[in-house]
Computed example of a mutant assay.
Amino acid sequence: MTAQDFIPKTYKSTIKNGKVTWESPSNIALVKYWGKKENQIPANPSISFTLNHCKTITELSYTKRETSNSFSFEVFLEGKKKDDFKPKIEIFFERVIVYMPFLKDFHFKIETSNTFPHSSGIASSASGMSALALCLMSIEKQLKPEMTDEYFNQKASFLARLGSGSACRSIEGDLIVWGESHAISGSSNLFGTKYPYQVHENFKEYQDTILLVDKGQKQVSSTVGHNLMHEHPYAENRFQQAHDNLEKLKPILESGDLNKFIALIESEALTLHAMMLTSMPYFILMKPNTLEIINKIWQFREDTGLHVGFTLDAGANVHVLYPKKEAKVILDFIKNELVAYCQNEQYICDQIGFGAKIINN
Rank of each mutant, 00 (worst) to 15 (best):
S267Y: 13
L306T: 06
Q299M: 15
G256N: 01
Y282H: 13
M280D: 15
G309P: 02
E266H: 04
I265Q: 00
G309I: 06
I294Q: 01
Y282R: 14
S255Y: 04
Q299T: 15
R301E: 00
M280F: 08
D257F: 05
N259P: 01
H307G: 10
P251F: 14
L306K: 15
P281R: 05
H319S: 04
K325I: 10
K296W: 03
M275R: 10
I265T: 09
D303A: 14
M286E: 10
A327V: 00
K248G: 01
S279D: 11
K260T: 04
E292Q: 15
A263L: 13
L312D: 09
L306P: 11
F310W: 15
K328M: 04
E326I: 02
A263F: 09
G256S: 05
P281C: 14
K325R: 13
K287F: 05
V308W: 03
D257S: 11
W298F: 13
T278K: 15
Q299W: 01
Y322D: 00
A314G: 14
W298K: 15
T278I: 01
T311N: 05
I293M: 12
K260A: 13
F300M: 12
I294W: 00
Y322A: 07
L277W: 03
F261R: 01
L249A: 05
A269C: 02
P281V: 06
D257L: 02
L249F: 12
T278G: 11
L312E: 04
L249G: 11
M286R: 02
M286K: 00
N259L: 12
I294L: 06
N317H: 15
Y322P: 13
A274S: 15
M286W: 14
Y282M: 08
H273M: 11
I294T: 06
E266P: 00
M275A: 04
E254V: 05
Q299D: 13
T311E: 07
G256L: 06
M275C: 14
I297P: 01
W298I: 07
M276W: 07
M276V: 06
P281L: 12
S279N: 12
F310A: 06
L272Q: 10
D257R: 03
D257V: 08
V320T: 13
N317V: 11
D257H: 08
D303F: 04
E326N: 01
L253S: 08
K296V: 07
T290C: 08
S255H: 11
M280W: 09
G309S: 08
T278R: 15
K296C: 04
T278Q: 13
I265Y: 02
L306H: 14
K324P: 02
A316G: 09
I252R: 03
G315W: 03
V308K: 10
H319K: 09
E254R: 14
L258N: 01
H319L: 06
L312Y: 12
I284E: 04
G315F: 07
Y322T: 07
K250F: 04
L264Y: 03
V308R: 09
A316H: 09
T290K: 00
D303K: 15
T278V: 05
M276H: 12
K328D: 08
H319T: 07
I297E: 00
F300G: 09
G315P: 11
H307A: 13
G305H: 15
E292A: 12
T271N: 14
V320P: 14
E326G: 04
T311G: 09
M275T: 12
I297T: 07
N317W: 11
L272Y: 12
K287D: 12
K287A: 06
